[in-house]
């Protein structure tokens, strides 16, 4: 079963005709972690809001945990979703307030588990949210997302603005969450090294278009970065070169590994290379 299934989804805002999400098709298999990457304004948050039923798609089909997001049943399915936004709760709330509200909102809310997470994250339950640091606020939202036995976590830039230690802790939480193979995660982030650590799949959105959605290891195994003189790139089939950037010492190119001549030095590509060369690299 797919945790998320999106077919030919299009969305255009009435107030912003310059942006549109066009013909998005992707699937997140159950038990997997998918990283959503793309530049600012690429449509990552729009796609997440479509998945959560906050926005209405102009066309196409969207289903989450086998339920059409347009159906009335989707409100019930939200009991199985854990969502993390950068600003989830109002500043005047305390963690105790959050517990009281969530207890009445979610069918399977576990107060003891929530307070356990607060203890684990060193969050004072009586402190107002406005008094918490950015990392603490994010951990509180994550604690809320994990305390009702969710099957699908949707995280919109959960590690942005956090120090490396806090980021690592959050990645550990995601890893722990996916130990159970019925649980899936969709995560967007600009910190691509974080995604590389936890993701099974990578989906790349650019200007509202899905450039690719592939298994991470498969994608990175078939690509390579070559560093050489620009004229040396002539030896590689044009169609196999994804993008080229000129440097002070020559050129760097993202290419398909199978097209690299044996005597040419190449490095394993990282997700960051894939994004930068696809977005900013020139074609040969």
């Amino acid at each position: 079963m797919n945790a998320i299934e999106i077919k030919n989804v299009c969305k255009q805002y009435k107030h912003n005709m310059d942006f549109d999400l066009k013909d998005i098709t992707l699937a997140l298999p159950e038990g997997c972690v998918m990283g959503l990457i793309g530049e600012n304004g690429a449509g990552k948050s729009t796609l997440m809001r479509l998945i959560l039923g906050m926005l209405h798609a102009d066309s196409g089909e969207l289903s989450v945990l086998d339920c059409d997001v347009k159906s009335n049943r989707f409100t019930d399915i939200k009991n199985d979703l854990g969502v993390v936004f950068d600003k989830a709760f109002p500043d005047s709330f305390t963690a105790q307030n959050v517990n009281l509200i969530m207890k009445h909102a979610y069918k399977r809310w576990d107060t003891a588990l929530f307070f356990d997470y607060l203890k684990k994250f060193n969050i004072d339950k009586k402190k107002k949210i406005q008094e918490l640091s950015m990392g603490m606020k994010m951990k509180l939202t994550i604690a809320a997302a994990l305390s009702h036995d969710a099957r699908l976590l949707i995280l919109d830039e959960p590690t942005s603005g956090l120090d490396p230690v806090a980021r690592d802790e959050i990645l550990d939480i995601i890893n722990d969450f996916t130990m159970d193979e019925s649980r899936s995660v969709l995560i967007s982030s600009h910190i691509l090294s974080d995604l590389e650590k936890v993701c099974d799949y990578i989906a790349y959105l650019s200007h509202g278009r899905l450039l690719f959605c592939e298994e991470k290891d498969e994608l990175l195994d078939k690509l390579a970065v070559v560093k050489c003189g620009k004229d040396e790139l002539e030896g590689i089939e044009r169609q196999k070169v994804i993008g080229v950037r000129e440097t002070g010492f020559g050129a760097e190119a993202l290419v398909y590994r199978d097209a690299v001549p044996e005597d040419m030095y190449c490095e394993r590509a990282a997700i960051e290379d894939v994004m930068i060369f696809t977005a900013k690299g020139e074609k040969l």
């Binding site: 959560l52 939200k78 969502v83 600003k87 109002p90």
Partner: peptide
């Protein structure tokens, strides 16, 4: 107005 700006409300399992 908060129902629209406090987006998290719309993520909860509430009609």
């Amino acid at each position: 107005y908060r129902s629209k700006t406090e987006k998290y409300i719309n993520v909860l399992p509430i009609q």
